[in-house]
Design a binder for these strands. Structure first.
Lengths: 212, 212
DNA sequence: GATTTCAGATACTCTTCGGTATCCGAAGCT
DNA sequence: AGCTTCGGATACCGAAGAGTATCTGAAATC
């Protein structure tokens, strides 16, 4: 192997990365309908390179999915390390999410296209679902930890709550996509606050009836 | 005009209806990628008939949107006429919605495809948004009426709450689409119950601090 | 330095499909 | 009855685009 340059595998790896990068941009712009030609061209290659690195167009989707979800998961995990008062953290988490969405709205659109695609494609859906589960597990862990430290028993299992939060998040994202000005930053935070207030209220109610 | 048969306009209207009907089925099956040819064929016509009745493929989407949203709106309005205890009605509404989704999952998928499409298409988005607003207005009215009768002041304006509910509904629908078994019927009801419990808790809190 | 291997380029296939331009024949008008 | 209108049919276009089959030149191997 020559020293100044890269080995073949490395070079291919690099090509793949470039294609992925280009793919992200092109898909963001044109959605799932984007053409492979354009992706390849944008990365400075041709279709040949693409098909040497991806099995099919869908394979690219899958790869992008993995990448993005992975990032988001890291973000959440990083978040779970911070420490502050409950109501505050809830609001902060909401804002963080809203920021995340605002940061690149293109990805949002793409996400829904992917979801729709998943709706028509069992195997794709499975992979997507697996990633969603990971994300939710991260959220559930965050909640559980917090509940323990506060000695506030959860009236609903933490993974269920995570599911609900995930749904709310997606719903918010959709709303934001359709009506960007409607779904302002604080709205989601507010929504979460209401939800957690409800959780606490129910918990207290249950505690009382159990104590009597 | 001959009596036994229909006038031209009527006949065309009928054709349009048939096309719309076929469109619903074909789109449900193949998504927005469905071909006009197939739609027309299913209705027993040819492309010619289609383009005599719709400006473009997108025009069909729009028409379908109007139809479906119209139906759902009626459903909601009918619902607002019923009368029962709050917690119960919340749960019932949740279940009604879950039933609505379960009734035809195809439409769900289509809805998200339309939403994604809207994400890339300003004018389409506007029309879709207009319909969403109507729906939310219906929901807001329902809430407002209920709050008044119960003399429970809302800590958040009813239209805001409607927006949140709408978002939750969509998030739930998305979750259900991806993982049908996860989003069971009662889950959404539960979610709503938590939310409304939160609303009440916050309202009471505010009432107390105002009273002191 | 000859040989093999393989990342990526080129060229081609095959199909699908939205939209249009044109035509036809029956309904509607006078 | 004859002229007109127009809903719907037919035929066509042109572009696009997902894959594939094949080639090539440089890197890896010996």
């Amino acid at each position: 192997m020559s020293l100044g340059t890269l080995t073949r595998k490395q070079r291919q790896q690099r090509t793949r990365e470039l294609l992925l990068e280009a793919g992200a941009k092109v898909l963001a712009k044109h959605g799932l309908g984007a053409s492979i030609d354009e992706v390849a061209a944008r990365a400075g290659f041709t279709k040949g390179a693409f098909y040497a690195n991806f099995k099919s167009k869908e394979d690219l989707f899958l790869a992008m999915l993995d990448e993005r979800f992975g990032e988001r998961l890291e973000q959440i995990e990083r978040f779970s390390a911070t420490d502050s008062e409950v109501g505050e953290q809830v609001r902060a988490a909401g804002e963080d999410f809203a920021r995340y969405l605002a940061a690149d709205p293109e990805w949002q659109r793409l996400f829904f296209e992917l979801a729709a695609h998943a709706g028509r494609n069992r195997s794709f859906a499975e992979r997507m679902v697996a990633r969603c589960r990971e994300l939710r597990a991260g959220i559930a862990g965050l909640i559980e930890g917090r509940a323990e430290r506060l000695e506030l028993p959860l009236p609903i299992p933490s993974d269920r709550i995570a599911e609900m939060l995930f749904m709310m998040g997606n719903g918010f994202a959709l709303g934001r996509m359709l009506e960007p000005d409607l779904a302002s930053e604080d709205m989601y935070g507010q929504m979460l606050q209401v939800f957690f207030a409800g959780l606490r209220a129910i918990a207290e109610e249950q505690q009382q009836s159990a104590g009597s």
